[in-house]
Design a protein around this nucleic acid. Structure first.
Length: 258
DNA sequence: ATGGTAGGCTCCCTA
């Protein structure tokens, strides 16, 4: 008995619905964490996904951001938004307990890109990462298997970048964001791709023929608590979804747990 | 130093 959990930045759920439903039918992941819905909860194509046997929890907003959890198992204890700033209006975090035979907690996280080092958006990115650290620290006290998947907008190492020189000092590779990511690992979370020994690119820019040149970065990740990491069987990237016509610029990352 | 593409929405913002 294994369970398959995927994370995918869809870059607009309404533009990507055919890709998503085709993939759900074909690969049948048990749990899917989505980012960049770019729609409100009312606009979310709930019925099309429920018809495929998924329970759906969304945290949407107009135009930007938006995250969701899809699960073949019932969801409980759903919470929307990241603790630490009640004024934050951006929909970038949703969490729930998956009532599978082996219960575990999941979250779908969409870390802000940060636009430019030194900008207000970059400062927000650093504050968001600090709030994420504080919250994930709290989750570790629950003694549950924890699976935090999403678009972290951080390439942890130069090995996670096709052309490290071109990306040096950028919002995706800066020490100021790599430090906080490393702190999550030092705290006791495991980078699933590294544990499985299969790190691979997850994002290729739409511009300048990046996909054709395999000019990608690994910025979408699964962080696992020890109880979840002990069950890890594989971590792969479903690159076929990036190769479709009118694709998202991200490919799903898929983990299989025993 | 800039531009290249995409999505949503409005003539621009975010990525």
């Amino acid at each position: 008995m294994t369970i398959t959990i995927a994370t995918w930045n869809v870059n607009s759920i309404r533009s990507r619905l055919e890709h998503l439903t085709g993939w759900l039918r074909e690969d049948k992941p048990d749990v899917v964490l989505l980012q960049e819905l770019k729609c409100t909860d009312e606009q979310f194509p709930r019925m099309e996904i429920e018809d495929l046997g998924y329970n759906v929890a969304t945290f949407g907003q107009k135009t930007y951001n938006g995250v969701a959890i899809l699960s073949k198992f019932p969801l409980s204890d759903v919470s929307r938004g990241l603790a630490g700033d009640t004024d934050d209006a951006q929909a970038r975090y949703i969490e729930a307990v998956v009532e599978a035979p082996n219960v575990f907690r999941v979250a779908s996280v969409y870390v802000v890109n940060g636009q430019e080092v030194g900008s207000d958006k970059f400062a927000y990115k650093l504050r968001f990462l600090e709030r994420l650290r504080a919250h994930l620290q709290t989750l570790l006290t629950y003694d549950e298997a924890i699976v935090i998947g999403g678009d972290y907008n951080i390439a942890p190492d130069d090995a996670d970048v096709h052309n490290p020189k071109a990306w040096a000092g950028s919002v995706l590779t800066h020490d100021d964001v790599r430090g906080p990511f490393r702190r999550l690992l030092n705290m006791g979370y495991y980078d699933a791709a590294k544990v499985a020994g299969t790190p691979a690119f997850t994002w290729w820019d739409y511009r300048a023929g990046a996909l054709q040149k395999d000019d990608g970065l690994r910025i979408d990740h699964f962080l696992l608590s020890a109880l979840a990491a002990d069950r890890l069987q594989s971590c792969t990237v479903a690159k076929k979804l990036r190769e479709l016509e009118k694709a998202s610029d991200h490919a799903p990352v898929v983990v299989v747990l025993k």
